[in-house]
């Protein structure tokens, strides 16, 4: 029940409130987010691995078990591999988020990605039951992973916009105080000393209990509120271009995460289980993800 409450709060954007992000806070623990990501990954993995149980040749329940383990691993291992570099770029761009909060924000994005994927699980299960075409199942899963990844990235982009936005004062057309912004990020002052952000000291310890859902008619409009706020900021202050660091960090993160994620998926394969091959936990190391994708598309039409 508590897990579902976390998922609910996550999807409603309670963990990525623009105000919290501007203050450099993510009000949920990394452990809770990790659990959410794990369970959602297992759910989709079970649907994805169903093909291995029902495939025309070499049917194996082990494939279902393996895929249920591998899907959450794919996301969490990719995050583990990329997190240090992602944090470095974030810090270079003077993010308000400290190391732990950066990890939490990335886990929130991964969990949103997995929540969407898990919600597509019944569709994957339905097609698994109704088709024997292995190339089709591969492409369907690639599309679902792509769509879920795209939404996760949009979500992350919105959150980053809030993290790097200059705050409500600029959004209302008032003069922004660059010194305040720098101090709030904990970046170096002109004299080279480093200030601790005030918000960090006031930041509450991450709570295991999800925040209560906002009442109907409240001002919170979900995770997509973050990019809308930034769009407003850009219109009001086009010269300021306050979100330029956010865009830079986002592009770099996306590139690193996508490349590592695609190759991690290649390393952890098979996820679905080719009908012509017996069950195996891992395949031999050869080729790469993108070559295999082109090959699969070609086989679908042949």
């Amino acid at each position: 029940m508590k897990l579902f409450q976390h998922v609910d709060a996550l999807l409603r954007g309670s963990y990525t409130d623009p105000e919290d992000l501007r203050a450099g806070r993510i009000p949920v623990s990394a452990r809770a987010l990790g659990r959410v990501a794990l369970v959602l990954g297992v759910v989709y993995g079970a649907f994805m691995g169903l093909y291995g149980v029902l495939r025309p040749e070499n049917a194996s329940v082990s494939q279902l078990v393996a895929t249920s383990v591998k899907v959450p691993l794919l996301f969490l291992l990719t995050l583990a591999v990329t997190y240090p570099s992602l944090y470095v770029f974030s810090a270079l761009a003077r993010s308000r988020l400290r190391a732990h909060d950066t990890l939490r924000m990335l886990l929130v994005a991964v969990s949103v990605n997995l929540a969407l994927l898990a919600s597509l699980g019944p569709v994957t299960g339905f097609f698994t039951l109704s088709t024997e075409s292995y190339p089709f199942m591969v492409l369907l899963n690639v599309v679902f992973f792509g769509v879920a990844g795209f939404v996760g990235l949009r979500f992350l982009g919105g959150a980053l916009d809030s993290v790097f936005s200059v705050g409500p004062a600029t959004a209302e057309g008032e003069t922004s105080d660059a010194a305040d912004t720098v101090a709030a990020t904990g970046a170096e002052d002109a004299d080279g000393t480093k200030d601790e952000p005030a918000a960090d000291a006031a930041s509450p310890a991450p709570d295991e209990t999800p925040p209560p859902a906002p009442a109907y008619g409240g001002t919170w409009r979900g995770p997509r509120a973050a990019p809308l706020v930034t769009a407003q900021t850009r219109r009001d202050d086009p010269a300021g271009d306050a979100s330029a660091p956010a865009r830079r960090v986002f592009v770099i993160w996306t590139f690193i995460y996508a490349v590592v994620g695609a190759q991690m998926g290649w390393i952890l394969r098979p996820f679905i289980g080719s009908p012509g091959r017996a069950f195996e936990w891992f395949r031999e190391r050869d080729s790469h993800f993108f070559e295999a994708l082109v090959d699969t598309i070609a086989r679908l039409f042949s």
């Binding site: 609910d8 999807l11 409603r12 954007g13 949103v112 929540a115 969407l116 898990a118 919600s119 597509l120 699980g121 019944p122 569709v123 339905f126 939404v151 979500f155 859902a213 906002p214 109907y216 008619g217 409240g218 919170w220 409009r221 979900g222 995770p223 997509r224 509120a225």
Partner: peptide, 22 residues
Amino acid sequence: AISSAVCLPNFFVVNSILGLRD
């Protein structure tokens, strides 16, 4: 009925992600 049931979980999540749960 089945087409709707299969798509409903995704509809729920998409609405939630868009901030339209209310």
